[in-house]
């Protein structure tokens, strides 16, 4: 361990803001690049489920008419 205490780790002899800002920005971009496709996938599945329901419903109503 290079640092004696948390405050020392946080300050990094004056370079803390630069180092921690870099790591924080990187973390947020990493999370964003993972979140984006997961989110799009969720939206897609919700939309397709809705379409499936509509299709099932239409099937039923057309069957009813025929009978």
């Amino acid at each position: 361990m290079q640092f004696e205490s948390f405050t020392e780790l946080w300050h990094m002899a004056g370079h803390g803001p630069f180092v921690w800002a870099s790591y924080a920005i990187t973390l947020s971009v990493i999370v964003f690049l993972i979140w984006l496709p997961v989110q799009q996938r969720k939206a897609f599945i919700t939309e397709q489920k809705r379409l499936q329901r509509i299709a099932a419903h239409e099937d039923k109503s057309s069957n009813n008419k025929e009978s």
Binding site: Q2, M12, A13, H15, G16, F18, V19, Y23
Partner: peptide, 23 residues
């Protein structure tokens, strides 16, 4: 961030290398 030694000239700011170089 915690265990690598500080650089002889740049001190702790060089720790940015661990993300700057890979990305």
């Amino acid at each position: 961030l915690l265990y690598a030694p500080a650089d002889f000239r740049q001190g702790n700011s060089y720790r940015i290398i661990y993300i700057h170089v890979p990305v």
